[in-house]
């Protein structure tokens, strides 16, 4: 029995391990680097001369911008796909489309990363780059917010659609009957009754998707670029928290220099950010489920 209990407690140990492993090094980091500069500075430029500027804001901006593009792709497509599957599709369409979407969800992110690096990035350059299809030269390189955002959006479509599908299916049939019985069309029923009823659950699903997007690493490492800047131009390369964690911790890391230790501060920021989103999302979804139980 003791064995069983300790096995169950491992989950807590892991969480504690995660937090502690990052907290120690983060404390260490803030001893040698001013925390106000980390949180409120506006420049990210690590170097080996000892005057690195290590501010999280430009990275956070890139992260949020790319995630927003991804959600802009994934939420409408995923939601409409879920609505179609749950409300319109016959059993046969459902039985084929659902597993195929799940297949999309089971593809590892390295595949999406390679797709961004080799296919989508250069493809976008051919459209928007110098001498490209549209005759504009908006894109200088293949890495950009758009490249990473689009591909991440594709990755998130099945995530959004399967969560929303579950949620839409949890809306009781009696509500649909009530609306149809009044002479509403299917789309009126969906837009005015089903979706509003499912709204909290869908918001939860979108928050979970956002948390995924923020924590995603491979797609941005391979598609977003390494330039830390705050800009509104989606055709420019920008960088994210996760890519900087990777770049600061790979290669020859010196665990006494702020340039390496900053990765832990970034890691804990990422952890807190995604944890917060997850907690809110799970609470929202749980509350929503209870409403219809």
């Amino acid at each position: 029995m003791g064995l069983l209990i300790s096995a169950a407690s491992i989950a807590i140990l892991v969480t504690i391990g995660i937090v502690l492993s990052m907290v120690f090094e983060t404390v260490h980091f803030f001893r040698i680097y001013d925390w106000t500069n980390f949180f409120f500075g506006s420049t990210w430029s690590p170097n080996f001369r000892g005057d690195s500027e290590l501010a999280i804001l430009p990275l956070l901006w890139g992260t949020l911008y790319i995630s927003a593009v991804a959600l802009l792709v994934a939420v409408p497509v995923g939601l409409f796909a879920a609505v179609y599957l749950a409300e319109f599709a016959g059993p046969r369409v459902r039985a084929t489309a659902k597993p195929l979407l799940e297949l999309l969800a089971g593809i590892p992110t390295i595949v999406y990363g390679l797709f961004a690096l080799i296919t989508v990035g250069p493809g976008l350059v051919q459209l928007f780059g110098e001498g490209g299809f549209f005759g504009v030269s908006w894109m200088a390189g293949a890495s950009s917010v758009l490249t990473a955002g689009l591909v991440m959006g594709i990755m998130l479509i099945p995530f959004v659609s399967s969560l929303s599908d579950d949620i839409i299916n949890a809306v009781p049939q009696s509500l649909r009957d009530g609306s149809l019985g009044l002479g509403a069309t299917r789309s009126e029923t969906i837009r005015q009754v089903v979706l509003p009823a499912a709204l909290p659950g869908i918001v939860g699903a979108i928050l979970l998707a956002a948390s995924r997007a923020i924590g995603e690493t491979m797609i941005v490492v391979m598609g977003a670029g390494a330039v830390a800047k705050i800009s509104g131009n989606p055709f420019e390369a920008m960088t994210t928290i996760t890519t900087r964690i990777v770049s600061q911790l790979t290669g020859d890391s010196d665990f006494t220099s702020p340039e390496t230790l900053v990765a832990f501060a970034l890691g804990i920021s990422l952890f807190v950010l995604t944890l917060g989103l997850n907690l809110v999302a799970l609470a929202v979804v749980r509350k929503y489920r209870e409403q219809y139980e």
Partner: peptide, 18 residues
């Protein structure tokens, strides 16, 4: 849709919309 506008329905379990 036309038909149901003229022939309405009330169900066993009350089902007010949210």
């Amino acid at each position: 849709v036309t038909l149901r506008a003229r022939v309405g329905m009330v169900f066993q379990k009350p089902n007010p919309f949210p």
